[in-house]
Design a protein around this nucleic acid. Structure first.
Lengths: 358, 358
DNA sequence: CTGTTAGCGCCTTCAA
DNA sequence: TTGAAGGCGCTAACAG
């Protein structure tokens, strides 16, 4: 499988040098013949320093390869400048955008992001939250599994800003940013209904998550308004994975009496649904109208182009980071008295995958 | 755009508690009436401790909410347990897999990953490398821009294991894991040639990166073997972004005499190429054979299903993490004397997007 | 403007 | 089995 080849060109000198350790304040101080605190002041730009000494210190710092030790500094100042970010994967658009954006913006503000990809596993979440506490993380953006409320509560109690995203953490008063799930699912279902569909398959997330529950509610509301009774065999809850979509499709589309439309309101599951539909050669939208949730670029290149409920993930990510940044640092905003719950609007993007039932 | 609503249910007590600070060794010691060192030993499991005192210490630790301060410990032990990971985005399959896998595996081994998404920007890379040094990161996995050799060299000199991935860092002897670029591009081009194509458009990465150069070489080798002379107007180098593909398509396919096949050997650019081809309604493979590089799930659901050169990203990510892990920690393997260069094999996945020229 | 002093929280000899 | 002492590298009063 793997070939090994020799390395690149030999660079004389580089590999022979003694392990080059980073210098410390003391190293610099000794070299210049001045006290550590003077060096500290000169290098951090605080306090008044003689022009001349400053220059000599700067030179010496260079010479001894001085690198401010963030750990030591953090110990002293009680500021780690570390932010935790917990997502469940990096495939889902909202999760990915969150990771990219958080790292970029927080990095620009002088913070570093410690990442955790937990596959929605409460145990991994627990461990991650523990290590974050140990690192004295100064902030946290998290898509919670919902099973570690106690640990999460500790952050808030310790005064560490927490921004909960995508799902609510029940029983805890934490600032939360959510998609407008009910509205999104309502709009999607309504669209299908208006097209004339009376038998709609609905694939959604876990019933014990905010988005799963709310999207379900929106769906049912639309059905009822149209005078339809929700049919349990047409509604599939499931975890946020492609298999969920694939299995649900097998159950509904493999049956003798398939629905005329399918609304996959679970982003990860939509990947599995797409797979099933393609493999089975089901004609979209002639044979089946297909509506997904949360846009990805290739949906518009697909044939037919896939219509979706756009959940506004970019905005959600921006808002999450923005809110955290506001509450970070010294003179920052305190936690909102009554923790705010923000909603990011959803929108319907109509392309080619839905049509009236034949 | 955004609606604000009141928070969830009020949880009595939770919000009123005084900021719950994490306890220190001293807090525990004071409570038990014993010295800090005893507590330290008891809690870290080193040294012999009286069964009874150990129990009391454990209880007290709980009571004062003791959390080992990783920063302090790191300062003392000179081990941050922090690993840097630098990728250019999280969309590209290889980058994303690297991030997911690194976090998972390293996390399981007791390390935390500091992430940086740099968009291939040397300045951001420089800043990130600096902060990593400051945090005393113990290891690094990086897709280098190639412009910060000096900074990268410092890690190696300081004895910090560095694993370079996807592109080589020229002039530095660092352990490196690469795709079999030349072979992959050769195989892809050869496939198109065997199908009968004589006029092939080729979109590839930057000429100053390993993958860009090597894929170009493989492509040209196949052409020459087939008795063809590479035509500069059919070869487009460009950065790893969708626009690269889109623009190159405009140039080649918008002309009066378009090629009969297009080989996009630049993963990010293939997204732009797909967009162009779809927008222009170009029939694949009838009008144009399309071959991409690096597989993504939806390529197989696309109509027609997209043929690709699979670069083995999963294996590459695994190998990278594996190698780093081997060199991490105390009794770990030293840097290979002659830094190894690993190659991960590529494979051709034939689907439906390529056909003989009409 | 600069030096001294005193820790931040932890680990680790060295004695008891 | 336990305690005392020292120091990792840095910052922040407080004196000079």
């Amino acid at each position: 499988m793997i070939g090994k080849k020799g390395g690149g060109p030999a660079r004389a000198g580089a590999s022979k040098a003694a392990p080059l350790k980073a210098g410390t304040l003391k190293d610099v101080a000794d070299l210049v013949g001045v006290s550590v605190s003077t060096v500290s002041r000169a290098l951090t730009g605080k306090g008044l320093i003689g022009k001349d000494t400053e220059e000599r210190i700067r030179k010496a710092a260079e010479a001894v390869n001085y690198r401010a030790n963030t750990l030591a500094r953090g110990l002293k100042t009680q500021r780690s400048r570390l932010i935790g970010l917990m997502v469940h994967n990096l495939v889902g658009t909202s999760h990915r955008l969150l990771a990219e954006l958080a790292q970029q913006r927080l990095g620009a503000a002088g913070y570093q992001v410690i990442l955790s990809v937990t596959s929605d596993d409460p145990e991994q979440e627990a461990r991650f939250l523990d290590t974050l506490e140990n690192y004295r993380a100064e902030g946290l953006i998290i898509i919670p599994t919902g099973r570690n409320g106690a640990r999460l509560a500790r952050f808030a109690q310790a005064g560490v800003p927490v921004v909960v995203v995508i799902r609510r953490q029940e029983e805890l008063e934490l600032e939360t940013i959510l998609h407008a799930n009910e509205e999104g699912a309502y709009a999607g279902t309504r669209y299908l209904l208006d097209l004339g569909h009376r038998d709609i398959g609905f694939i959604v997330g876990r019933a014990d998550t905010t988005s799963g529950r709310e999207r379900y509610t929106g769906h049912v509301r639309a059905l009822k308004e149209a005078g339809l009774r929700p049919d349990p065999s047409r509604i599939h809850f499931g975890s946020y994975r492609p298999e969920t979509g694939f299995r649900a499709c097998e159950a509904m589309l493999g049956s003798g009496r398939p629905p005329t439309a399918l609304f996959v309101a679970n982003h990860e599951a939509s990947m599995g649904a797409m797979k099933y539909v393609t493999e089975q050669g089901i004609a979209v939208p002639d044979q089946l109208s297909l509506l997904c949730y949360e846009d990805v670029p290739w949906f518009s290149w697909h044939k037919p182009a896939i219509s979706v409920v756009d959940s506004g993930s970019q905005r959600l990510a921006e808002l999450a980071v923005e809110r955290l940044l506001l509450r970070l640092g010294e003179g920052a905003a305190p936690a909102p008295a009554r923790p705010l719950e923000h909603r990011v609007d959803a929108g319907l993007i109509i392309r080619e995958s839905c049509a009236p039932p034949r």
